[in-house]
Design a protein around this nucleic acid. Structure first.
Ligand code: ZN
Ligand code: ZN
Ligand code: ZN
Ligand code: ZN
Lengths: 164, 164
DNA sequence: AGATGAACGTTATTATATAACTTGGAGATC
DNA sequence: GATCTCCAAGTTATATAATAACGTTCATCT
């Protein structure tokens, strides 16, 4: 699997087919280790989510399953698959977009931190210990115990700033 | 107006009627300064949002306007008022809850940072420069320019930890 | 009073997500 | 191999959140 957490993958040109393939292989391994079943449907949904580095909506997934795969799918089909992937840390939900992104380092539990480009809609996952620590510190100062973070930053990526 | 940004107001017992009243007075002043109209409806919506320290959904507001105020209200009525309040920095939207909160320091533009108690649903607004700086630094390191932050932290507040 | 434009009312629709129940199918048990 | 069991997926209906498009009212300025 390519080193995805160091330089943000979404930025740099890369072999994206390989990128998707390795994400799926990684997911298989994780599911085996966790003793959970990555069924064909769940695998396919994960693949679709991974096929772009942009957040994907549940109904976009649904459309592909219905129109492209010819599967009889209704909303629960997609949401159940997404729930499974979320529970097992294979995707993240982006609340501010009602959309989903493949997780770039699902091996270990972690918080959800994203940079989202307003122009090209690419979402880049961060894993900044500094941000998490700042949040924990701020929370502790008013006696609040953190269970989960949602950090979603909107702005402009390097490529889009150059383009404009 | 009570000092709301120092010790989190939502935590401490306080004269909440006064709390709401001063928020409204503050809003009036801001709207005058900005040359925008805080109409009766907008004022009322702001009041409802402020009447709890918990995030309030658009349809909750709608229900009060219809049932309690006897006003003929449909979703656009509420959403337009909320849009106005958002534009003028008087309320924040909490993406992870699809809900709205009165802003505790609407005098100056700032990012939205919230601690949300999983148990009592109280939402406490933070204004941590440290968090913002950590985000900006992490973004800069991969050449991303920040335009807006969404920080929504879920966990347990002091009161609820004691209660359990 | 009449013109103007913003705010609000009204109706309909779109987008997102879940509830509740049924059917199917992989793996365990006999 | 047949049966049992349980989880996954199909199915139908509905809940919840948000917006589009158009008409009406009302404050304000001339
Ligand atoms: Zn890729
Ligand atoms: Zn991740
Ligand atoms: Zn209060
Ligand atoms: Zn605020």
């Amino acid at each position: 699997m390519p080193a995805m957490s160091q330089t943000p993958l979404a930025y740099t040109p890369h072999d994206h087919d390989l990128c998707v393939k390795s994400a799926l292989a990684n997911a298989e391994a994780i599911c085996v280790r966790q003793g959970v079943r990555l069924t064909a449907l769940r695998r396919r949904v994960l693949e679709l989510v991974w096929q772009s580095h942009k957040p994907l909506g549940a109904y976009d997934i649904l459309a592909v399953l219905s129109e492209q795969d010819g599967r009889r799918a209704a909303p629960p089909t997609v949401y159940r698959a997404l729930d499974f992937l979320l529970e097992n840390g294979l995707v993240h939900r982006i609340a501010s977009l009602n959309a989903f992104m493949g997780c770039v380092h699902p091996e270990h539990a972690h918080q959800s931190q994203f940079l989202i480009c307003r122009n090209c809609h690419t979402a880049i996952e961060m894993e900044s210990q500094t941000i998490s620590e700042a949040i924990t510190a701020a929370a502790r100062s008013i006696d609040f115990v953190v269970q989960g973070e949602t950090v979603e930053v909107i702005g402009l990526c390097a490529a889009c700033r150059k383009a404009v």
